[in-house]
Design a protein around this nucleic acid. Structure first.
Lengths: 274, 274
DNA sequence: ATGCTGCGCTGATCCACATCAGTCGTCGCT
DNA sequence: AGCGACGACTGATGTGGATCAGCGCAGCAT
């Protein structure tokens, strides 16, 4: 047992890493730095900056549009990488803003890639983490594209809770959360005004209370049902069968958005080689 | 020069791979298979299926909601991986449907990871490709979250064009495109009815014509301006400075969505260590 | 003690987009 | 020749959420 950082806890949810592997992981951490809330550490368009691992505090990555709107793509919590993709693409396609004051450790990508060659299990673990991050962006896309404001909010706050629980920063009662309603608005594609209204609805429905830097799950189960939340992509041995059944059921009663063709083609559950 | 598959062309846009590296890459390709349009090859919730490289035709990955709506997350074109994330996460969090009849080659993830250990440059190239895919999902999220229907459509069709051009399947005049208006609707978070109206608007504005399986850019430059399209995350040496300037400019004239705090904190372009 | 600023909160109004309920033309099948 | 299914397309009507224009309060600086 070397250290119990959030990153180790997170990767540990995937594979138990051996001591040598933990050593390699620890050796990646270089200089420790702090950034203050609200001042971007990475600007959209900037090139060749460093990558970091978030040690404490929250950050968010977002994209700006020319008309001045912004879309927050993802929030980063302790244990998450910051700016890894930027480094791989040699240019940052997004900005990163600390939501609260944060502590990070710098990592060098060359070191990381070399560590992959040495300890393949570590490579797999990091790839898994990256895949999980992408899965969350995808779920975020579904939120914004296909759920109404209240479902979106509920689903989003549940997901955040699940992520935080994974690194020991929350549970089914709730979690402390430094986000403002503006952050929520920019993340969910809503106006701040509407965020406020939706939060009130959810509070009055007795499902969730967002107030004074704390998210309280007043009725976790009801909330999960309301948001159609499925945490199985967080676990690796989640309730797969339920989802499979759901997928098939959905295909049987699909409304206008999907034309007839698709509805009929349910029966064979195996691909059809031509 | 071993082969000139779409995948090689795509990775070649990042680094020129050596002949041994191309050999390793070629050795990954196993069984060749075909699937017919409209029959899912991967179901949401399914576990432990194979990963593929798309050789010809188009596919899309999407998520189903319990109420039967769907959100198409991404389209795959020749040279793209299918189901790589599903394999890494041991369960598919999405379904994959061939849009047209497709040809694929199967790959084994174990082989892929082993290849990474042998030829680190290949690992980097594939990681780059994965990062670029994620960047596209992110851009898609921005589309859906913050652009109105017409901008969204324009931006989406431009992006698709840029991707296709990268593997030699399109240019600034247009590209052939097997998508229906339902696909567009499910992808952009719109109703099929509205997709139709928006396409008419764009056509009548003389910017783009989507018809009979072909997308024609009637006025590419105007379209790029209208959609605020910036292809720099496709290149690796894109016009970075313009974006940086844009990012700063945006921060100066940010409307209601962003509160005062953020607007003032522009001046220092370097992070502020506390 | 008096502003000022950031954040949360609210009612009134408006519009972009969804939904509903169709039409039309084409293709393939019998 | 006639039928079904599918994709493209359209007008009428309804609504979710944006926008505008405010208020109240707490923390902080002068």
């Amino acid at each position: 047992m070397i250290e119990n950082t959030p990153l180790v806890r997170k990767l540990g949810a995937f594979v138990a890493l051996s001591d040598p592997e933990l050593l390699v992981l620890a050796s990646l951490h270089k200089r420790r730095r702090t950034f203050v809330a609200g001042w971007d550490l990475v600007h959209q368009g900037q090139s060749d900056q460093a990558a970091y691992i978030l040690a404490s505090g929250w950050a968010c990555s977002y994209k700006l549009l020319e008309d001045g709107q912004r879309q927050i793509v993802d929030f980063q919590i302790p244990g998450d990488f910051l700016g890894l993709r930027s480094v791989l693409l040699h240019v940052s396609d997004h900005s990163i803003e600390p939501v609260s004051d944060i502590e990070v450790t710098e990592i060098h990508v060359a070191d990381l890639l070399q560590a992959f060659a040495q300890t393949p299990r570590l490579a797999t673990a990091v790839l898994w983490a990256a895949s999980r991050d992408e899965a969350m962006v995808v779920e975020h896309l579904v939120d914004v594209g296909r759920r109404d404001a209240a479902e979106r909010m509920a689903h989003f706050l549940l997901e955040l809770g699940a992520r935080l629980a994974l690194v020991g920063l929350g549970n089914k009662d709730g979690y402390s959360c430094p986000l403002t309603q503006y952050h929520l608005a920019d993340s969910l594609g809503l106006s701040a005004v509407h965020v406020n209204r939706v939060l009130r609805q959810l509070r009055e429905a007795g499902m969730i209370t967002f107030r004074a830097g704390f998210v309280a799950f007043d009725d976790y189960d009801q909330l999960v049902r309301f948001a159609q939340f499925d945490p199985s992509y967080m676990d690796q041995n989640g309730p797969l069968l339920r989802r499979l059944r759901c997928a098939l059921a959905c295909r049987q009663m699909r409304p206008s958005s999907i034309r007839m063709t698709t509805m009929i083609r349910i029966v064979p559950s195996t691909p059809v080689p031509a």
